[in-house]
Design a protein around this nucleic acid. Structure first.
Length: 314
DNA sequence: GTCCAGGCCTACG
DNA sequence: CGTAGGCATGGA
């Protein structure tokens, strides 16, 4: 058993906590709601975050390093503290849309995370046409069945976590072995296995898709070559797992707020593939070419919480 | 019971 | 082109 030792302290705003449960990651969880400790597994390193006060955060870690970086360096990158919240959202939201701006106050500092590419690929393949609770439950099953078991202790309580499965592990499965992780959907199980196989054998090179030198369209096409990955899932993988903050995924909620908040008439119609691309261009024009997806995620979370009253955390 | 959840793919006009 | 239906289940 690995005792989770306090390793370092990171000074930041409390808004990074919302980042963990804004729907971009399905892996982090709350251990103690009264004295919030958030637990995650990065590679094979167990990491815990505890809020000390509004601007101070303690990092716990089962190792001195997280993916070969110090915990502080790792989380500075992971939580994109290099992205300035003030420049992320465009001015027109503050001036022209006075009805939206008050709603955004609790969400405007949410950070989009730089997550692990393969984990992001698979978890978003699990997220089609089902609710957030089932998605989280599927991902939990995925790790429990096919990841590595890791035990730790926090304040003398034993906590059991699992790493995310390796591509080779998932690639070796048969669809029926994966059904508990795909809501019993056989097609999705088989799609996930073949995508994992593509990563394992190198025909899908996720790291190469991170390069800004590669056009966003080409990166998306490489992902969409996999069965079960369409425009929306591909854009999510680019945004959350490949650090392409210009990628702008449009799901049912984004579709809704583009109509309700931005008055885009096209968004009132059903979301066909052609309309997806057209709406995406309009959104990028409004939100800016560099951080459209980053800004879009903040709007997405605000819409879910403030308008739809949906919760994302368990 | 009905409807909708962070969709994708195929078949059919 | 577009739309409808299938995939599957749980919670509101």
């Amino acid at each position: 058993m690995v005792a989770l030792a306090q390793k370092s302290r990171l000074i930041t705003t409390a808004d990074i906590y919302n980042s963990l449960f804004s729907g971009q990651t399905f892996r982090w969880r709350i251990i103690d709601k009264k004295k919030p400790i958030y637990l995650g597994v990065i590679g094979n390193t167990i990491t815990g975050l505890r809020r000390d006060n509004k601007r101070s955060l303690t990092i716990f870690s089962s190792s001195d390093t997280i993916l070969e970086k110090s915990p502080v360096d790792f989380f500075t990158d992971y939580f994109t503290l290099d992205i300035d919240a003030d420049t992320c959202l465009p001015e027109f939201l503050k001036t022209e849309n006075s009805d939206i701006w008050p709603l955004l106050q609790r969400y405007k500092n949410i950070k989009v995370l730089r997550q692990h590419p393969f984990e992001t690929l698979i978890t978003f393949m699990c997220a089609q046409g089902i609710g957030m609770k089932i998605i989280r439950s599927q991902v939990e099953n995925l790790c429990r069945h096919f990841g590595s078991r890791i035990e730790t202790s926090i304040d003398n309580d034993t906590v059991l976590v699992y790493s995310f499965p390796e591509p080779e592990t998932l690639a070796s499965l048969k669809p029926h072995e994966l059904l508990s992780c795909t809501n019993n959907n056989h097609i999705r199980a088989s799609n996930i296995i073949s995508a994992a196989a593509a990563v394992a054998d190198g025909s899908l090179d996720l790291d190469s898709l991170r390069s800004p030198a590669l056009a966003l369209d080409e990166a998306r096409n490489a992902l969409m070559a996999q069965r079960g990955i369409g425009l929306k899932i591909a854009d999510c993988i680019l945004l959350f797992g490949l650090q392409r903050f210009d990628a702008f995924p449009i799901d049912t909620h984004v579709h809704q707020y583009l109509a309700a908040w931005f008055g885009i008439e096209e968004a009132a119609k059903s979301l066909t593939q052609k309309r997806y691309l057209s709406l995406q261009q309009k959104a990028i024009t409004l939100l800016g070419p560099d951080l459209a997806g980053y800004a879009g995620h903040i709007l997405f979370h605000c819409w879910r919480k403030e308008v739809k009253r949906l919760d994302t955390a368990l």
